[in-house]
Design a binder for these strands. Structure first.
Lengths: 249, 249
DNA sequence: GGTTTTTTTGCATGAAATTGCATATTTTAG
DNA sequence: CTAAAATATGCAATTTCATGCAAAAAAACC
């Protein structure tokens, strides 16, 4: 087979399926994975596809989720993500919202986890879609201007009708005296509804947001069951917290 | 055999099989590979074939990488997108699904357009979120495995409750006899519901999908109001279509 | 026909392209 | 963190290509 011919087939495959795996192409086209990698690299240089680890994606459907998260917070968010994933068990129904910390968690979810995910964010929905064993249900609604959370009465209503095992939220304000707080009224309503639908609520946040207070109250710390930060155990200044299980790192 | 004669045969071979290998031609025509190479080089200089490493390819088959054809492919999508955007007016409620062609349209929507967008795709929701004057409503549901369309009864129910001015869909099959068709039953149900909710339906599709038929029928062409392809007016083989307004380029 | 001129062809040579493998490095999954 | 997967890189074997050149074939000329 001509090399150009192979490049054409690969491009077509990418555009039809939106993504390709190097290993699959290698077998289908009977060439080594090295050759496939070189092909994908060339197509990417031409700008007609986007090379990613393990294969390639079509240009129109590739979204750079990374790059906007601040560097200093990355390792912290990795630690948080690991701990949050520890809470996920097979056959759970799990509700997550959007935000950079949540995205870090989603990206690390093991491929073999079998669960139902409900999400309020288009980014997390997309990120979850390549997990074979995960069914993704998206609670639609009005998209907030930051583009990563559906809000509004529609969302509240839909949340009222579902029963969730674990709900994972990221918050902007958290203190032992004021509890969970946020600055956006719409977001607060949605988070309240999320917590009402869930048996257990986990709050993930980087340590720098501890002991900050925003304008609008979401709930007391009593209502949350897991608090996950990157801090080592015992170092939290939230020791006054007496509610459910306190998970720290 | 005369050289001119051989050139004719080679050209025919290229156009029939879309590709030729120098080695094969050498054996078939009983001349050295050097001679074949010189022949291919000459035909390529005349512009009737494209020379590639190891042989040659037909001009039409080689479209993605050639500089000129690439420009053509881009302008085709831009023409489609421009025409589709021409249908959008301020204060409309517009319903769009997912897919590569739809994404091209979304990317070109002017920032100043003031409208309500309903979408069934997380990708288009994100792409729309940076438009200041656009309110994005996402119809949530179960995310299809390809990751670019919400499906399921939830979606159908929600669609039944909204009233849309313009609905823009991309289809996989379109012919004057069979109408709109697709290969996925779930997707078909969703598209039907979309059309029921909308006053006007626009179908966008690249020309190569014209006159293709998939397994499951969506609707007759009578039910659609706009058909947008990159073809110049009058060149469509769907001239039998007598339904609503037919928009071509 | 015979000779000259032009074109075509095959071959040799070195350059360039392609491919697969081995190895070291990076990224990812658990 | 550790193991596994994917990647980048250098290298060698093979194939394809471009070029020059001489022989062969075709065309042009007398």
């Amino acid at each position: 087979m001509l090399r150009k011919e192979r490049l054409q087939l690969i491009l077509k495959e990418v555009n039809v399926h939106n993504k390709v795996l190097s290993a699959e192409l290698s077998e289908k086209l009977s060439v080594s994975e090295d050759t496939i990698r070189r092909d994908l690299h060339e197509l990417a240089e031409e700008g007609v596809i986007v090379k990613v680890h393990g294969g390639a994606m079509s240009k129109t459907f590739h979204y750079p989720f990374d790059g906007n998260s601040k560097v200093y917070a990355v390792s912290a968010k990795q630690k948080i993500a690991d701990k949050a994933i520890g809470l996920m068990k097979n056959d759970m129904s799990i509700l997550i919202e959007g935000g950079t910390t949540i995205m870090e968690i989603v990206k690390k979810i093991p491929l073999k986890l079998r669960a139902n995910f409900f999400t309020l964010s288009p980014q997390t929905a997309i990120a979850l879609s390549d997990h074979e064993n995960i069914e993704v249900m998206c609670i639609g609604g009005r998209l907030a201007k930051n583009g990563n959370l559906f809000t509004g009465a529609s969302v509240i209503n839909q949340l009222a009708g579902i029963r969730i095992d674990l709900c994972i939220i990221g918050v902007n304000g958290l203190s032992s005296k004021e509890g969970l707080t946020d600055s956006d009224w719409e977001v607060v309503q949605v988070i309240k509804a999320m917590m009402r639908s869930a048996k257990k609520t986990a709050v993930v946040t980087i340590a720098e947001k501890l002991n900050t207070v925003k304008k609008i109250k979401i709930s007391d710390l009593d209502s949350i069951h897991y608090l996950i930060t990157e801090l080592p155990p015992g170092s939290s200044s939230l020791s006054a917290y007496k509610g459910g299980q306190l998970v720290k790192m």
